[in-house]
Amino acid sequence: MAWIVLVLSGLLETAWAIALDRSAGFTRPVASVIFVITLVLSMAGLAYALREIPVGTGYAVWVGIGVTGTALVGMLALGESASLPRILCLVLVVAGVIGLKVYH
Score class of each variant (00 low, 15 high):
residue 65 I to S: 06
residue 73 V to W: 06
residue 62 W to Y: 14
residue 76 L to P: 10
residue 21 D to I: 11
residue 17 A to P: 11
residue 31 A to L: 09
residue 59 Y to I: 12
residue 42 S to E: 01
residue 10 G to A: 06
residue 63 V to N: 12
residue 88 L to F: 12
residue 47 A to I: 13
residue 16 W to E: 04
residue 51 R to C: 01
residue 88 L to P: 07
residue 74 G to P: 05
residue 64 G to P: 11
residue 103 Y to C: 05
residue 46 L to E: 02
residue 86 R to M: 09
residue 15 A to Q: 06
residue 71 A to D: 10
residue 34 I to M: 13
residue 43 M to I: 15
residue 20 L to E: 09
residue 52 E to N: 10
residue 28 R to N: 13
residue 98 I to H: 02
residue 66 G to L: 12
residue 31 A to Y: 12
residue 94 V to Q: 03
residue 39 L to T: 14
residue 95 A to V: 14
residue 35 F to G: 05
residue 97 V to H: 07
residue 63 V to C: 14
residue 46 L to I: 09
residue 18 I to P: 09
residue 96 G to R: 07
residue 2 A to I: 04
residue 60 A to M: 09
residue 2 A to M: 02
residue 55 V to P: 01
residue 69 G to Y: 13
residue 41 L to P: 00
residue 91 V to Y: 02
residue 100 L to V: 10
residue 71 A to R: 15
residue 103 Y to P: 00
residue 102 V to D: 02
residue 35 F to T: 14
residue 9 S to T: 08
residue 20 L to P: 10
residue 35 F to Y: 15
residue 33 V to I: 15
residue 57 T to W: 02
residue 95 A to S: 11
residue 24 A to N: 11
residue 23 S to H: 09
residue 36 V to D: 01
residue 31 A to G: 07
residue 39 L to E: 02
residue 88 L to M: 14
residue 26 F to E: 04
residue 62 W to A: 01
residue 25 G to F: 08
residue 7 V to A: 13
residue 97 V to S: 06
residue 74 G to S: 06
residue 30 V to H: 06
residue 86 R to G: 05
residue 86 R to V: 10
residue 23 S to R: 12
residue 6 L to F: 06
residue 13 E to F: 10
residue 44 A to Q: 08
residue 2 A to Y: 01
residue 41 L to H: 00
residue 95 A to I: 15
residue 55 V to D: 02
residue 40 V to Y: 00
residue 30 V to N: 00
residue 27 T to S: 14
residue 11 L to W: 02
residue 93 V to I: 15
residue 72 L to W: 07
residue 73 V to T: 13
residue 25 G to V: 10
residue 60 A to Y: 04
residue 35 F to D: 04
residue 55 V to C: 00
residue 25 G to K: 08
residue 2 A to E: 03
residue 83 S to A: 14
residue 10 G to S: 07
residue 50 L to V: 12
residue 17 A to G: 12
residue 4 I to L: 14
residue 29 P to N: 09
residue 89 C to E: 00
residue 79 G to H: 04
residue 61 V to G: 01
residue 45 G to Q: 00
residue 25 G to E: 06
residue 90 L to V: 10
residue 43 M to D: 03
residue 6 L to C: 04
residue 87 I to Q: 10
residue 101 K to N: 03
residue 10 G to Y: 05
residue 43 M to V: 15
residue 37 I to L: 14
residue 54 P to T: 11
residue 45 G to I: 08
residue 104 H to R: 13
residue 5 V to E: 01
residue 67 V to L: 15
residue 10 G to C: 07
residue 17 A to I: 14
residue 53 I to C: 03
residue 60 A to C: 08
residue 85 P to T: 13
residue 46 L to W: 03
residue 12 L to K: 04
residue 62 W to D: 04
residue 39 L to N: 10
residue 30 V to E: 05
residue 84 L to Q: 12
residue 79 G to M: 01
residue 84 L to R: 15
residue 62 W to R: 11
residue 6 L to S: 09
residue 70 T to K: 08
residue 103 Y to R: 14
residue 53 I to W: 03
residue 58 G to C: 04
residue 73 V to D: 06
residue 80 E to R: 09
residue 46 L to Q: 09
residue 17 A to K: 11
residue 1 M to K: 10
residue 54 P to H: 08
residue 56 G to E: 06
